[in-house]
Design a protein around this nucleic acid. Structure first.
Lengths: 153, 153
DNA sequence: GGTGTTACTTCGAGACTCGAACTACTTTCA
DNA sequence: TGAAAGTAGTTCGAGTCTCGAAGTAACACC
């Protein structure tokens, strides 16, 4: 019954996403954020070069106008700043402020405490991470094959 | 680095949920539905007794007014009908129409074709289903323990 | 029968998302 | 060089989704 397993997996993935969201709503609310803005903050990794709006909209699966809207909220709250990319002046780059780094850290830490996935042991978690990485890898390759090849990240 | 695995899992959960949504948007649109209404249709299992609005709102992690709104759309499209539960006349029960059963079947089948999870083999899928079921089970037990015990489903 | 509780709906407001149209900049190519 | 085409973002307007507050109907418990 592989079909049944597949359906169970899709359902569980949905359920766990919603459940994690439920448990995190208060936490992000305390920082004046919503789930949507918190997700946007999450995908700005302070360890790497500040992402462009285009990159962020891909990571968040939303379109450009939506990202402008969400980014404005983060700017208004002083969590990120919008800079013009000197290498391509069409492009705007989103950089965390000191406060943004702090809030992002708290939100990620709080999410990892609250998510139901935290109930797994280290071994199971590793196993799960491996399986999900495989699914994402396949999706990436599929996307690259579907359109003409794009530079992989 | 169990912390890193946990973060990767939470991220992958989000990414795969969004990715599945992206791939299914056209399909549900062809049936005059959106992702939100399609989810509502999904949780009405024709094999079991028609769920009450309350049960559906729990399954969808939304509140009562929202579910009324979404249910109205399904009723308008002739996919479900709203009936008063004879055992408790406060309660409304949502039952699929013949058309609703057909559309629900197509949407689920189409989703299982398109979801990135379909890239896994049967063995991996089974393994993944088992891990996710364990996470959901832990979340259920946690919920039951947190509040005073509620009859488990 | 009265009081409190539960299930649902309606209403109004806010948050989110998107397409269309626009600006600014870069790339291409003749 | 310079015009044409393409790309990155923004603004605007509309539609969808979500929620809290208030209201209605029915149950439950004395």
């Amino acid at each position: 019954m592989s079909q049944t397993d597949l359906e169970a997996v899709v359902r569980a993935n949905h359920e766990l996403f919603m459940l994690t969201g439920d448990r995190v709503t208060d936490l992000v609310g305390r920082h004046g954020l919503t789930l949507a803005t918190a997700q946007a903050l999450w995908v700005v990794d302070p360890e790497e070069a500040p992402p462009s709006m285009k990159v962020m909209s891909e990571r968040l699966h939303c379109n450009a106008p939506n990202l402008s809207f969400v980014t404005n909220q983060l700017v208004d709250r002083g969590l990120v700043e919008r800079l013009t990319d000197p290498h391509d002046r069409r492009s705007r780059v989103v950089r965390l402020t000191a406060e943004g780094r702090r809030v992002r850290g708290e939100i990620i830490a709080g999410t990892l405490e609250r998510t139901p996935f935290a109930a797994l042991g280290a071994g199971e978690l590793r196993e799960l991470a491996k399986l999900l990485a495989k699914v994402l890898g396949a999706a990436d390759r599929e996307r690259a094959g579907g359109t003409s090849a794009v530079a992989a990240r």
